[in-house]
Design a protein around this nucleic acid. Structure first.
Length: 527
RNA sequence: GAGAUCGUAGCUCAGUCGGUAGAGCAACGGACUUUUAAUCCGUGGGUCCUGGGUUCGAGUCCCAGCGAUCUCACCA
């Protein structure tokens, strides 16, 4: 009973028969002598490029004159009928083009069909007339459903209403969509389906494909900017024996042959610094890191991080680089420095604001940041537990609570309390201050940079200090003897930078959730 | 991990006081050679997330579970 699909049930309209009616058409396409799964299709143009050829469309009069169209020919107010009458009898001619794409709209007016196809550069209308394409193509056109992939050969012209259109001469069938597409106007609205079936979201939802292509442009721009400044990209290990370089809980895994516990990396830092010891003076990695933490609109367990290290630089050089990376990325997207973010607008015009941690603290908290007792009092007023906590930790918690959300930015926050920065070089004049900045935009930490600590003895001591009284996985400082050994071979003084690529992409594409800019975010398995 | 909200046709969504399931799009049949979210006429389509409970009667109320969204916590 339940073997092959029963075509006769297609007259009903239930879910099964939506598929059945498509399968019937699939069979009819085969019967017509076409392969419903298509084949190589050479020399087709992208819709964007076809749309760029409107200048080749002309008016050919019956007495042989070829006339250029007036520039406002497609304007809504332009009387095309009258213009043609004024030129004398004739017709539009245009270039022969070949396009391919997904059918996203269809209008059947009897012996005439309008079909909109979309490729990854744009959308264009096809005109398919029964008398114009011939019997076989017309029959094939009748077997096309929304969501199918088709190709067309035809002439690029305007319709009577001024719509740029490919007037089909031959149709090609490339692939049948057995599944029905979502609502042709609203697309997919259900956030769960959009993420679980990203292919459907990309294919049919307004702006999704463009958003992810913009992500790619941003990443390409970053590589290009760094390459242009002589940085080399490397690939470090993602399986670590010590999950160092950041404070986060790692994913734990196991290697069978060596019978050892391994961690998925939570940061890129320590291996890149080893490479600087080895003489890679400008080096970066742009890759995935994994943190076994909560999921939220701003957190995904795997996310993309950029870390850059520049020998003989410092955090000042990293500030300039950060600004350039972001400005170049904006140029790669659309070049607009005034960028929407929800209801607000963020101004990315360089140079970005720069303020010290202590100045911002004083401004937003209203307390002298050097006055540990006053800071502690504020923390207690907020309701923080201050017992057994280092003054800098308390200060940091108050900063995160009172200051960070207020930083609409872009703003560089400079000079952090040294004791919360175990991998950072201290300021020569004031060892209480670490040469570190973070870039905040709309309350989000987008970048984090240091003048890198390269004193192996101090590094070893700071690792040990941080370990005291703190669970190892909660600390940025995890003793890594090989890393210390590397520093003992001399790492050049350097600037180092980390950028949260996902958050940068969120900001530059006005996407409120990290899941809008990660193609396949982690979801619970389907029920 | 905690709380709030949500889950109804393939998709987008209504569903009143608890009274036996609705629309648009999509599909199917018909008309139409310049439409464009085409239009017009007609037809079919439901495990109301799952499982219990209350009730004469549950899409609706209660409990549990599953999944999602948001907020909080952790974190970037």
């Amino acid at each position: 009973m339940s073997h092959t699909p029963d075509n006769s049930s297609a007259e009903a309209g239930d879910a099964g028969s939506l598929e059945a009616s498509r399968r019937i058409k699939l069979q009819k396409i085969i019967d017509l002598g076409h392969d419903p799964w298509g084949s190589r299709f050479d020399d087709r143009s992208y819709v964007r490029d076809i749309r760029a050829r409107t200048g080749e469309i002309q008016y050919l009069t019956t007495d042989g004159r070829t006339l250029a169209l007036p520039p406002d020919f497609t304007a809504e107010t332009f009387d095309r009928k009258k213009w043609k009458a004024d030129q004398g009898p004739g017709e539009l001619t245009g270039p022969k083009v070949r396009a391919a794409g997904r059918v996203v709209l269809q209008r059947d007016t009897g012996k005439l069909r309008f079909v909109n196809i979309r490729d990854w550069t744009g959308n264009i209308q096809l005109f398919i007339g029964k008398n114009q394409v011939g019997e076989e193509n017309w029959t094939l056109a009748g077997l096309v459903d929304l969501g199918d992939l088709i190709g067309v050969d035809g002439e690029l012209r305007y319709t009577n209403t001024g719509e740029l259109t490919i007037f089909a001469e031959k149709l090609h069938f490339h692939a049948k969509s057995i599944e029905s597409p979502p609502d042709k106007y609203h697309g997919l609205a259900d956030a769960e389906i959009r993420q679980r079936m990203r292919y459907v979201d990309l294919a049919y939802s307004e702006g999704t494909l463009e958003r992810f292509l913009n992500r790619t442009k941003i990443v390409q721009s970053i590589r290009s900017t760094l390459g242009g400044q002589g940085f080399v990209e490397i690939e470090g290990p993602t399986l670590h024996t010590i999950a160092g370089g950041a404070a986060a809980r790692p994913f734990v895994t196991h290697h069978n042959a060596l019978d050892m516990q391994l961690y998925l990396r939570i940061a890129l830092e320590l291996h890149l610094k080893r490479l600087m010891v080895g003489g890679m003076e400008r080096v970066y990695e742009l890759g995935r890191v994994y943190r076994n933490e909560g999921i939220s609109p701003r957190h995904n367990p795997e996310f993309t991080m950029l870390e850059v290290y520049q020998a003989y630089g410092d955090y000042g050089s990293m500030m300039d680089l950060t600004e350039q990376l972001i400005c170049d990325a904006i140029k790669a997207v659309d070049g607009n420095y005034q960028r929407p973010w929800g209801e607000q607008t963020v101004d990315f015009t360089p140079p970005f604001q720069r303020e010290t941690y202590d100045d911002l603290f004083a401004k937003h908290v209203g307390v002298d940041p050097q006055d540990a007792a006053a800071v502690k009092q504020v923390a207690e007023e907020i309701g923080f537990d201050t017992k057994h906590k280092h003054a800098a930790v308390i200060k940091s918690e108050v900063f995160e609570e009172k200051v960070e959300d207020a930083l609409t930015g872009p703003i560089f926050v400079l000079d952090y309390p040294a004791s919360i920065c175990p991998l950072t070089k201290r300021n020569a004049k004031n060892p209480e201050v670490a040469e570190r900045f973070e870039l905040f935009i709309q309350g989000m930490e987008v970048a984090n940079a240091y003048t890198e600590l390269n004193d192996p003895d101090l590094q070893e001591q700071l690792f040990k200090t941080q370990l005291d009284g703190q669970a190892e996985e909660d600390s940025m400082a995890k003793m890594d003897h090989d890393f210390i050994r590397a520093l003992r071979h001399a790492m050049p003084p350097a600037g180092g930078l980390g950028v949260g690529i996902d958050r940068l992409v969120m900001l530059l594409t006005n996407s409120p959730s990290i899941r809008d800019i990660i193609l396949f975010p982690l979801l619970r398995p389907e029920g």
